[in-house]
Computed example of a mutant assay.
Amino acid sequence: MDRRAVVIFSTSSCCMCHTVTQLFRELGVNATVVELDEDPRGKEMEKALARLMGRSTGVPAVFIGGRLAGSTDKVMSLHLSGNLVPLLRNAGALWV
C-alpha cells in the first residue's frame, strides 16, 4: 500500500480532522497526515486549501490518488454511498 495514496491535511486541534483520519484508519488505510499547525508554512497552506475547496477553513482536506476528495462531509458521503472503498482501491490505498 502506498502511504501517499491518501493525504490528509489536518490541524491537531480539529475534531473533524480527527474523525476523518480515524475513518481511514478503521478502513485499513495508512494515510499520510500533514499537521498544518506543526509546519512553519502551515497557515499559508491552510489558506490555499481553503481557497481550493471554496470554504472558510482548509482542514480537513483529503486527497485520494493525488486528487482532492474534499472535506469531512464529502468523504463521509463517499463512504455512506459505498464509493469510498473503490476509490481507495483504485488509488492503491487498499488491497482488499
Rank of each mutant, 00 (worst) to 15 (best):
C17N: 04
D37V: 04
A91S: 07
L68W: 02
V85W: 00
A69Q: 01
V34G: 09
M76Q: 15
R55T: 05
D37K: 01
T32I: 12
G70D: 06
V33L: 10
Q22S: 12
K43L: 13
L52G: 06
S77C: 04
F24R: 04
V33A: 02
A50W: 15
T19V: 15
A91N: 01
D37W: 08
D37F: 10
E26Q: 10
M16G: 07
E46V: 06
R89M: 15
V33Q: 12
K47L: 02
G92R: 06
Q22C: 12
L84G: 03
V59Q: 07
A91Y: 01
R41D: 08
V62E: 08
V62Y: 02
F24C: 07
T72I: 09
L94F: 15
L80W: 10
V34R: 03
D73V: 08
L87P: 00
I64K: 00
D39W: 04
V85Q: 12
L87C: 06
V6C: 10
L52S: 10
M53G: 11
V29F: 12
E38W: 00
M45D: 00
S56W: 15
D37H: 02
E38L: 03
E38H: 00
V7K: 04
E35G: 10
F9L: 02
Q22M: 11
V85D: 03
T32F: 10
G58W: 00
V96Q: 14
I8S: 06
L68T: 06
R25I: 03
R3A: 05
R89W: 14
A61E: 01
A61D: 05
V59D: 08
R67Y: 14
V7I: 07
R55F: 06
R89C: 13
T72N: 05
H18M: 15
G82C: 06
S71N: 09
S10A: 05
T32C: 09
P60Q: 06
A48M: 11
C17R: 03
S77T: 11
F9G: 04
G65C: 08
L88P: 02
V85Y: 03
M53N: 15
A91M: 08
M53H: 13
G54V: 02
P86I: 11
L27Y: 05
A5F: 15
V34E: 07
A5W: 13
T72A: 10
V33D: 08
V59N: 02
W95T: 14
P40W: 08
S12Q: 03
T57S: 13
T57F: 08
M53L: 14
I64W: 00
L68Y: 02
P86A: 09
A69Y: 01
G28T: 08
V59Y: 04
